[in-house]
């Protein structure tokens, strides 16, 4: 028996929106710890790791650890039946090949029961080693999103360079080139507007913009994004989900031949 209840149902809608352009099908791992997922994009260049801790749910029951294979696109379709202020309950029983989503309006005057077929998904689970990163940039997630959108109109790749001067995002395309530098700004009264750079070593890495831009679909989950970089390593783009967990995207760099 697996059952979880999330009063802030829009959060699940936003989480699924944040992964549906990257991943087609995925196994959701259910355990007493929480509801989690690890999946790669179809070309195995990017990986997304989601964690929603059990303590973040109003009700969480998971009698045994198991995985639910779901099509993310179908899940997004089912969640379209939920209003943003609905309470969402997800239920699955042992041995069944379906999952039930229940959407309750806050005033309890409308209840939707949606059943979705589960899938058998053969997916590799990757071990992600704990790493010390050479540079960690924390910045407003909307700022990061708009930088990625702006640069992707010019080029296909983004070079992220962290130095004492700040973090520079640059691109080059057929029509020209552009670079945007953000300096450390921790003096702001609003912590969500701060840009903070922790740097042990200067780092310069290049990534495909189409993936990074997909990651920014998670912008509504967190006011801040954390970008962790080390030379010749995948970048980690993390959005914290308040009181529940996080969504982390890993992207392998492009390396010069």
């Amino acid at each position: 028996m697996f059952e979880l209840r999330l009063v802030q149902g829009s959060l699940l809608k936003r989480v699924i929106d944040a992964i549906k352009d990257l991943v087609n099908d995925a196994n959701f791992d259910c355990s007493s710890t929480g509801f989690s997922l690890q999946a790669m994009d179809s070309s195995h260049v990017a990986l997304v790791a989601l964690l929603l801790r059990s303590e973040g749910f109003e009700h969480f029951r998971c009698d045994r650890t198991f995985s639910m294979g779901m099509s993310i696109a179908n899940m997004a379709k089912m969640l379209k039946c939920a209003s943003n202020d609905d309470i969402i309950t997800i239920k699955a029983d042992d041995g069944t090949d379906t999952v039930t989503f229940m959407f309750e309006s806050p005033s309890q005057d409308k209840i939707s029961d949606i059943e979705m077929k589960l899938m058998d998904i053969d997916s590799d689970h990757l071990g992600i080693p704990d790493a010390e990163y050479e540079a960690i940039v924390r910045m407003p997630s909307t700022e990061f999103g708009s930088i990625c959108t702006s640069l992707s109109t010019i080029g296909d790749t983004v070079t992220i360079a962290v130095s004492k001067q700040g973090v520079t995002f640059s691109t080059k395309g057929d029509i020209g080139s552009g670079n945007i530098t953000c300096r450390q700004n921790s003096s702001t009264e609003k912590p969500e507007e701060a840009t903070i750079i922790e740097m042990k070593e200067p780092v310069v890495l290049t990534f495909a913009l189409k993936y990074i831009t997909t990651f920014t679909k998670a912008t509504s989950l967190s006011s801040q994004v954390t970008i962790s970089l080390s030379s010749d390593m995948p970048v980690v783009v993390e959005y914290k989900i308040a009181e529940m967990g996080h969504i982390r995207y890993y992207l392998a760099p492009k390396i010069e031949e």
Partner: peptide, 14 residues
Amino acid sequence: LTFQVCIHDFFFLS
């Protein structure tokens, strides 16, 4: 010229 590395090159199968 740059080439795209795969995520498998960094993270191991568990």
